[in-house]
Design a protein around this nucleic acid. Structure first.
Length: 280
DNA sequence: AAATCCACCAACCGCCGTATG
DNA sequence: GCATACGGCGGTTGGTGGATT
């Protein structure tokens, strides 16, 4: 529901697919992003031959296809971290995700709504009732063996590699927005996210099999994409990529960005807003 | 064995802020 | 300065499948 009638809705619905992604669509999206990155989400589906809106493509990539996503159950430590971060940050899922590499805001949000919230409610009730309050009621089901149709289909399609076992766990937006924990987080996030998105783009490249990462493909990448400091910094760490693309000295930029994150964390800790994170 | 309930999670929607012409 | 395009975030929904009755 856009306030301006001149503004097109986020996704024109005529002729565009919705719902679960097919393995073929995943393939197309991954292949396209590997080759070209995602300088323009809106134009991407057309160029990639996908009958999806750009937003849908973006979401699919960010939440599912990105190679550095850590899949599987949340550990007890991760759950506790979510609870602590939520205490400090509230429902700022992207900010919480920023502290949890490999986890997406959507995933964290889901975990929160499905059982962490319930768990806390139970604990509060127990506390109010004067009970000792066991920390982790056994209410959570074991992870489903069966996955959604799309997930099953995807897993049957090895060409779509979302496996993180390669060890190329690139830092993504997760590192770029600690500043959002302070003040008008969205405004600050926006400034960091542009670079972070490019980094995400690269993370797909980082996962490339050597054949898919052919220099010719890399050369097709958008210039701005490859000139991003984060991207080039990451490039420096990858031996099997075209050396031309690994611009010297950019890894220090990544280090500087890491320092930046620590700065903001420190600020928050000192302000007392995230005091309970100090144990981390 | 069938019906129903419920947990999980992928995906959608609406809104907002920034970038751009 | 204004209008529009775009990217991103958080809230919510709907489909799926396991658990329970």
């Amino acid at each position: 529901m856009y306030s301006s009638p001149t503004k097109a809705p986020f996704c024109e619905k005529e002729g565009l697919r919705r719902g679960a992604w097919s393995p073929e669509e995943d393939d197309r999206l991954v292949a396209y992003i590997r080759r070209h990155g995602h300088p323009n989400w809106r134009a991407l589906p057309k160029q990639a031959g996908l009958l999806r809106c750009g937003k849908s493509c973006r979401l699919r990539w960010i939440n599912y296809l990105r190679p550095d996503i850590k899949r599987g159950n949340f550990t007890a430590d991760e759950e506790d971290l979510i609870v602590r971060l939520h205490n400090s940050l509230g429902n700022r899922w992207s900010a919480i995700a920023a502290q949890m590499p490999g986890r997406t805001d959507n995933e964290i949000k889901n975990v929160w709504h499905t059982h962490l919230k319930k768990r806390l409610d139970d604990e509060r009730k127990l506390a109010a009732a004067g009970g000792g309050g066991g920390r982790r009621p056994q209410t959570r089901k074991q992870p489903k063996a069966a996955k959604s149709a799309a997930a099953v289909k995807r897993e049957a399609t090895p060409s779509v590699s979302v496996d993180t076992s390669s060890g190329v766990t690139c830092s993504t937006v997760t590192e770029s927005s600690p500043s959002s924990a302070d003040g008008d987080h969205r405004r600050q996030q926006q400034q960091t996210q542009h670079a972070a998105v490019k980094e995400e783009s690269f993370s797909s490249g980082g996962e490339l099999p050597a054949a898919a990462a052919a220099p010719t493909a890399a050369a097709d990448m958008d210039e701005s994409f490859w000139s991003s400091t984060e991207v080039t910094g990451m490039m420096a760490g990858l031996g099997d990529m075209d050396e031309e693309l690994a611009i010297a000295g950019t890894s220090s930029a990544a280090a500087a960005r890491s320092d930046d994150m620590e700065f903001w964390l420190k600020m928050l800790l000192e302000s007392g807003d995230m005091r309970d994170l100090a144990v981390l």
